[in-house]
């Protein structure tokens, strides 16, 4: 009798393992950091692309009801596609769009904006990429929608789509 119970437990144990592995197959094995909404946007100081003046992110955010911070680079291919979407957004609304230029050369960034337009009210630079890391970003492009208290309302990883834009427009109304 003891032997039977032991084997039964053994079978149940392996069935459990089987089920876990089976379910595990559906999970993506690539990790994306969880979208932590309602976290606070970390303050940073940087230089403006054109004027070279130093700005504090807090000042910019506090003075606007909503701010959209877009991390971009001239060498990033999806950023080119996203740029027209941003241009539309800047024309349709009066949302304060701030650019964070990631690991880029000033000349290339300026050329990019000349070619595709400038939707940004201000562009701060992140030459080493460490400001982006302190914000919790890890790639380009990434976009944050903030309120005036620096709370992150929405975070978008990857280029912005039309759907994202509609969502943003709804929120800022």
């Amino acid at each position: 009798m003891k032997k039977n119970i032991f084997y039964l437990i053994l079978l149940l144990f392996f069935t459990f393992i089987f089920t876990v592995f089976y379910k595990g197959l559906d999970k993506p094995n690539f990790y994306t950091p969880k979208e932590v909404n309602n976290k606070n946007f970390e303050e940073f100081t940087s230089f403006e692309l054109f004027s070279n003046k130093q700005f504090d992110s807090q000042d910019i955010i506090e003075n606007n009801k909503f701010t959209l911070v877009n991390i971009w680079s001239s060498w990033c291919v999806p950023c080119r596609q996203e740029h027209s979407v941003l241009m539309n957004l800047s024309k349709k609304t009066d949302l304060n769009i701030v650019g964070l230029n990631y690991k880029d050369k000033k000349n290339n960034a300026i050329k990019f904006l000349k070619e595709l337009g400038n939707p940004f009210s201000k562009i701060l630079i992140d030459p080493d990429g460490i400001i982006s890391i302190s914000l919790g970003a890890y790639g380009v492009p990434e976009t944050f929608l903030l309120n005036n208290k620096s709370k992150i309302i929405k975070k978008y990883i990857g280029p912005l789509t039309e759907n994202n834009i509609s969502e943003i427009i709804k929120i800022i109304k």
Partner: peptide
């Protein structure tokens, strides 16, 4: 071979193959 784990040197990442091996293993 099933793609369940993330590694520098995994082969195929195909859940269908994973299910077959899993069933066979068990």
């Amino acid at each position: 071979r099933s793609g369940i784990l993330n590694s520098v040197h995994t082969f195929a990442n195909d859940p269908e193959r994973g299910i077959f091996i899993l069933l066979f293993l068990f």
